[in-house]
């Protein structure tokens, strides 16, 4: 981390008896933000008139290929996420920098997924005309909500031990489903092209 991990950015009460009561806002705020993000993305995708086209990157045959490779990159780092998470929790032997690996692979996966989502929402929108597309739209919106929730939960202290693994596993499972319904479908339909 390039920032001081101990820097106080919010006026949370210091660890003490207060936290044993498990203040509801700790869960409520991430849950509300997650819902807002997911519903907001879906509403935008539904309301916005799909442009049908957007930027492309030189060297790729189509935006579909660009997105599929970006999504595959994100999925690869998501796999790193799972392994490094096991290391952080001591379930797998890992190097001392396993937590840093976990943080940075997650950031890369997220930042690589953002352009894909932007293109989806801008050019294609929230669509329901077949089940693959429906699930992809639904889970795509859900993913960014769940990811936001996990990021916000990370800031809380003394969470129940099972919570982060559950949310993290959920985020990974959803990303996998998104990848299966888009990039894998693309590669199977159009071939593994660039």
């Amino acid at each position: 981390m390039t920032v001081d991990p101990n820097a106080a950015t919010q006026g949370f009460p210091s660890p003490g008896p207060v936290h044993r009561r498990s203040h509801p806002a700790r869960y409520l705020v991430p849950a509300l933000v997650a819902a807002a993000v997911a519903v907001g993305l879906g509403a935008y995708g539904k309301a916005h008139d799909p442009a049908g086209t957007a930027f492309n990157i030189a060297g790729f045959s189509s935006t579909g290929a660009v997105k599929s490779w970006l999504a595959t990159t994100a999925f690869f780092f998501a796999l790193v996420q799972v392994v490094s998470a096991f290391m952080v929790y001591g379930r797998l032997p890992g190097p001392r920098w396993a937590p840093a690996l976990h943080r940075w692979s997650g950031r890369i996966a997220f930042l690589v997924a953002v352009p894909v989502a932007v293109h989806c929402l801008y050019a294609l929108g929230y669509q329901t005309y077949e089940s693959r597309v429906l699930w992809h739209s639904l889970l795509g919106c859900f993913f960014f909500g769940a990811f936001s929730a996990k990021m916000l939960l990370l800031r809380s202290e003394r969470l129940p031990g099972w919570l982060l693994p559950i949310i993290g596993g959920l985020v990974f499972a959803v990303l996998t489903a998104i990848w299966l319904t888009s990039a894998l479908w693309f590669f199977r339909t159009f071939g593994v092209t660039t």
């Binding site: 920032v3 949370f12 990021m151």
Partner: peptide
């Protein structure tokens, strides 16, 4: 134990 770290927020903000 988890610190109140700005990292996750910065990640979200960057995205």
């Amino acid at each position: 134990t988890r610190m109140k770290r700005p990292g996750p927020l910065l990640t979200l903000l960057a995205g």
